[in-house]
């Protein structure tokens, strides 16, 4: 099959960027989208043109490195699928694909399709952990956790940190990312000690970089792990509680 690509090319954060049109011919339906870009890059190198820079690594949909806008959708048209797991069979022969980087002020562009997502690390630094020094943990089976709770915590913990939620959000908000991490830890008994400070800090750091949630639900659809916006509601609920709680007394509740 054959596709026409319009790919965003930009040499650096300060350089001007523009779409460039490429035609990629003789590709197979079994090929992944990134493999199609590999082929295009190979052709570009042979022509003496610099290859397109794009982030990718595991190509199994778990590391969260890859991610581009394809026809106005983060990670392309297949729901619950990262760019690296998207296959060309999902497109029509002869289709035109517009490929753009994530755009958000919190994700400054590095080059071509690559953006800097380190703001996510700053959010995690704010409390996306349970403070337990190595060696100080009690036996793992000391605290039984209902299966349903553990499963729900996992649903939230499945986040791969790719940034598609921010890319999809009309407001450039990172609420799904932040809520997923907060909910994962706040749901578990181990996470209770730092629940309120974690929620407060992470939300406030998030807001230094990103926009606000207006409940479009676009992030959930863009998420390669289909993480539910129910977690955003959980975060909102915990945030107000974090502001109200008399933290000297939390152990009583």
């Amino acid at each position: 099959m054959k596709v026409n690509l319009q790919v965003w090319r930009q040499e650096g954060p300060e350089a001007a960027g523009a779409f460039k049109t490429y035609e990629v011919d003789k590709i197979s339906e079994e090929m992944s989208f990134l493999e199609m870009l590999d082929i295009l890059n190979e052709q570009l190198v042979n022509k003496g043109e610099e290859p397109i820079a794009f982030d990718h690594d595991c190509r199994e949909g778990i590391c969260g490195t890859c991610g581009v806008m394809i026809n106005g959708q983060p990670h392309g048209p297949q729901l619950g699928t990262a760019t690296c797991q998207l296959h060309m069979r999902k497109f029509d022969d002869g289709a035109t694909l517009v490929v753009e980087p994530w755009r958000a002020t919190g994700f400054p562009l590095v080059r071509d399709l690559i953006v800097d997502r380190s703001a996510f690390d700053r959010i995690i630094e704010g409390g996306g952990y349970i403070s337990v020094d190595t060696g100080s943990a009690p036996d793992a089976n000391l605290t039984p956790i209902p299966k349903m709770v553990a499963d729900t915590a996992f649903d939230a913990a499945a986040c791969i940190g790719c940034g598609a939620c921010v890319a999809a959000c009309p407001n450039g908000a990172a609420n799904l990312f932040t809520a997923a991490k907060i909910s994962h830890l706040n749901l578990l008994p181990q996470g209770q000690a730092e629940r309120w400070s974690r929620t407060e800090n992470m939300v406030e750091i998030m807001e230094e970089y990103f926009g606000s949630c207006t409940n479009h639900g676009e992030c959930e659809k863009a998420c390669p792990k289909s993480i539910s916006i129910d977690f955003i509601a959980m975060m909102n609920s915990d945030y107000v509680k974090a502001k109200f709680k008399n933290r000297r007394l939390v152990a009583q509740s």
Partner: peptide, 28 residues
């Protein structure tokens, strides 16, 4: 003020067309 915040959060807009899946006319 939320609108202002959201404008600041997306100083560069998408150059290509957007396809929305969940966001509808009302929400946008």
């Amino acid at each position: 003020s939320l609108t202002l915040m959201n404008r600041r959060a997306r100083t560069e807009r998408y150059e290509g067309p957007r396809t929305y899946v969940a966001a509808n006319y009302a929400s946008r």
